[in-house]
Amino acid sequence: MTDKPKLLVLIGPTAVGKTKLSIELAKAFSCEIISGDSMQVYRGMNIGTAKISKAEMEGVPHHLIDIHEPDEPFSVSEFQERCTQLIPEITARGNLPFIVGGTGLYVESLCYQYEFAESGSDEEFRLEQAAFATEFGNEALHDKLRIIDPESAQRLHPNDTRRVIRALEIHKLTGETLSQQLSRQKKTTPYDLCLIGLTMDRQMLYNRIEERIDHMMEQGLIEEVQKLQAQGYTPDMVSMQGLGYKEIWPYLNEAATLEETVYLLKRDTRHFAKRQLSWFRHMHDIQWVDVSGPENFSANYEKIHGMITGSFSSDFQ
C-alpha cells in the first residue's frame, strides 16, 4: 500500500501503436489521458504530429493537446508544471491519470520529478545558432555541441537542430551542460508508478513509419504546412523545427523535390524512432511489451491490462 498518487504511463516510439491501446486501456481503467508529446500542444499542427482526433478519443478526456499557438514555445518545465497540476485534479475526480507519449525527456522528467536549473531563454542566441546551421550545415552546429557536451551530442541527431540549439543555449545560460543536469537527477518517483513501454521488431516498425508518412502525405501534410506558412509562421520557430514540418519547408521554398522531401521525412522519422528507443532503454521501471504483429492486439491488450492490474492490485482486483 502507498499513499502516493497513482500514475499510469505508456511510452514507445512513433508509429508503434500507442494511440489505439491507450484508448482501450483508458476506458477499462477510467483514465484521463495526458499527452506526453512535445508537438501535439500546437494548434493547427494535426497531420504532421499524428494528433488524435475527437472521434478517435471515443469520449476519453485528453489534456495538453492544442494548448499553444505555433509561435508559442513549449518546454519541459511547462510540461512538468501542467502535469503536476493535472494529476491531483484527475485523481480527485476519481479517475486514473494516464501519460501517453513518446517525448522521452518530458515523460522521464515528470515520472522522477527532475529539477532543472532556471536557465530561461536567449532568443537572440537561438536565432544566431539557427542562422549558423543554415549557413554551415547541421553537422557544423552539432560539432559545437560535441565539443562542450559529447554525451548530449551522442544522444541528439544532427538534424534535430531544435534540441541541439537548446542544449547549446542551456550551456550558455547556466555554465553547465544538459547531460550534467540530467546526471544529477534522483531516480526516485513521487508517484505510485506503472510504466509500460511498447517495442516492436525494428524492420516492422520502419515499415509502419513509412506507411504512416505515405498516409500523412495523402491526408494533406504539405497543405497543412502551406496553411501555417500563410498564417505567418516561419521555419525558424520551435514548432516548425518539429519532425514532419522542418522537412516540408525546403519543398515549399522549391529547394527540394517532392520525392526528396518524402525520402528525408521517412529517413528522419526512422532515425527519430531509433533515438526514442535509445532514450527509453536507459529509463528505470519500464515493463516492456513487444507488440510486433497487428494480429496480436487482443493478446497485447490483455497482457498490458494484467500488468496494470498487478501494479495497482488493491484498486483493480
Results as ranks from 00 to 15, higher is better:
residue 142 H to S: 02
residue 161 T to F: 01
residue 258 L to Y: 15
residue 111 C to D: 05
residue 5 P to L: 12
residue 56 E to A: 15
residue 200 M to L: 14
residue 90 I to D: 08
residue 84 T to I: 10
residue 227 K to P: 00
residue 170 I to E: 05
residue 268 D to G: 00
residue 27 K to C: 09
residue 278 S to C: 00
residue 205 L to I: 03
residue 68 H to V: 04
residue 116 F to P: 05
residue 138 N to S: 13
residue 314 S to D: 14
residue 23 I to M: 06
residue 195 L to K: 11
residue 26 A to T: 06
residue 1 M to R: 09
residue 7 L to P: 03
residue 274 K to A: 10
residue 287 Q to H: 12
residue 267 R to T: 14
residue 91 T to G: 05
residue 99 I to F: 07
residue 156 L to I: 15
residue 61 P to T: 09
residue 10 L to D: 02
residue 96 L to S: 08
residue 213 I to F: 02
residue 239 S to F: 00
residue 167 A to D: 08
residue 3 D to N: 15
residue 233 Y to S: 04
residue 223 E to C: 02
residue 117 A to W: 01
residue 43 R to I: 12
residue 314 S to P: 00
residue 237 M to K: 06
residue 131 A to M: 09
residue 267 R to S: 10
residue 276 Q to I: 14
residue 173 L to D: 07
residue 221 L to D: 03
residue 105 L to R: 11
residue 52 I to V: 15
residue 281 R to V: 01
residue 185 Q to H: 11
residue 139 E to I: 13
residue 228 L to W: 00
residue 135 E to I: 12
residue 77 S to C: 08
residue 106 Y to H: 10
residue 180 Q to C: 08
residue 311 S to V: 03
residue 302 E to N: 08
residue 121 S to Q: 10
residue 212 R to T: 15
residue 58 E to A: 14
residue 155 R to W: 06
residue 67 I to S: 02
residue 296 N to E: 07
residue 149 D to Y: 07
residue 265 L to H: 11
